[in-house]
Amino acid sequence: MPEPTLLADHTTLHLGGPAGRFVTATTEDALVDAVRRADEAGESVLVLGGGSNLVVADAGFGGTVVRVATRGISPDVEDGTSCGGVLVTVAAGESWDDLVARAVASGWVGVEALSGIPGSVGATPIQNVGAYGQEVAQTIASVRVWDRTLKGVRTFANADCGFGYRHSRFKADPGRHVVLSVTFQFRQGDLGTPATYAELARTLGVEPGGRAPLADVRAAVLGLRAGKGMVLDEADHDTWSAGSFFTNPVVPAAAVPDGAPAWPQEDGTVKTSAAWLIEHAGFTKGHGNDRVGLSTKHTLALTNRGGATTSDLLALALEVRDGVEMQFGIRLVNEPVLVGCSL
């Protein structure tokens, strides 16, 4: 009997026990068929993309794991033939950063600041992935899914996706929608979107709101992310993480601690910095033990230093979450999806 597939081999944290059954779907039909068959058999299903946003229990996942390995990037016009915009439909299994690299090379504007983010294209609308002043919601035209409840293919326009900060209708109803493809609407040009994120603007040498060539923005973002351990490197345990483990909390204005960053929201609340809260609650870079710890480069990343278990990682997450809540009265919320475990 073959050895079970360890999910630790398919997650960027290198954590997670065995899968009950493991299926790799290289076509859209195969993806739908694998999920549908598992549903009809009454099996639990885990749809796996790049594994960059998952924390899987040491016991693993007893149902069917379907790895999305579909490919295809299809613009509606040939590169460079339109002076306006371009619609680009991308298979869910495509590497997100490969798409960003293609966009930058093709003059497709709007995702250059999302360079270096690991994972698959199909995962990006679920979390409404964002960084350095950009979110995928700003360029997504539509998301095509297999609806496991209605047992059919549906297409959601951007306005119907319920996008918010690290949120969408797909995240609100977890597991129901299997993303098949995402269609993006890009402007075409040589310059990136205005650099509203102060750190990126400084790195590019432009004023906040200024613009820089697409390739320069990508290079700057990759450099910033690498400096924070946020570009995957198998040789560097500081990158054995799920990226930012906690989202920036959105709280009433009166709840923001003195000195903490504050970004006012349209509804009157304020978004503040999870990293600032963690650091000012006494958890410095590198905090932890010889198995797990905060990254030595970035306090928002919880890392596997080698030989760790998921239980080790969750214990560290609880220590940080509870410490911040005790100090500031703000409870941090995990960004990665927890599979078979909880905080």
Rank of each mutant, 00 (worst) to 15 (best):
P213C: 08
S82T: 15
A113V: 08
E112V: 02
V88Q: 04
M326K: 15
T81K: 11
M326S: 13
S44N: 14
G189W: 08
T183F: 14
L180F: 07
S241P: 03
V23M: 04
A131M: 01
V121W: 10
L313Y: 07
D39L: 15
L300Q: 00
V65L: 09
P261H: 09
S74T: 14
F170W: 09
T284L: 15
R144L: 07
Q127R: 04
L99I: 12
R144G: 02
G268K: 05
L6A: 11
E234G: 13
R218N: 01
D79F: 14
A275G: 10
E112Q: 05
G205T: 03
H298F: 12
T183Q: 15
P118W: 07
D233R: 14
L300H: 07
G189F: 10
A254I: 04
E28R: 13
E28C: 10
R37C: 09
I278W: 01
A123L: 04
R202M: 10
F186C: 00
G93R: 05
S342M: 09
G17D: 06
A92D: 04
V221F: 14
S95N: 12
A315L: 10
A34Y: 08
V129E: 00
A123P: 00
A113Y: 08
A220F: 09
D33G: 11
N128S: 03
G116F: 11
T203H: 15
A274G: 10
E335D: 08
A91C: 10
V104T: 04
A262D: 04
R321T: 07
G293T: 04
D29I: 12
V231C: 10
G329H: 10
T183Y: 13
E207L: 13
V35Y: 01
H298P: 00
R71A: 15
D147E: 03
P336G: 11
E94D: 07
V231S: 06
D312S: 08
A215R: 08
V129K: 03
V221W: 13
D9G: 12
T309R: 12
A255V: 12
Y165I: 01
A157W: 09
L46T: 01
G175I: 05
V68E: 03
A159I: 06
R187Y: 08
V23Q: 03
L314N: 01
L87R: 08
R225N: 04
G42C: 13
V217G: 02
S142I: 11
A113I: 03
E40R: 15
M1N: 13
L48G: 06
E112R: 03
G72W: 14
L6G: 05
D98T: 14
G72L: 13
L191C: 05
I330Q: 04
G50A: 02
V86R: 06
A242C: 11
D190Y: 12
V66H: 04
G340D: 00
S142D: 14
A281D: 02
A301W: 00
I73D: 06
V145G: 07
A159S: 15
D216H: 11
G229M: 06
L222T: 09
E266I: 07
E325M: 09
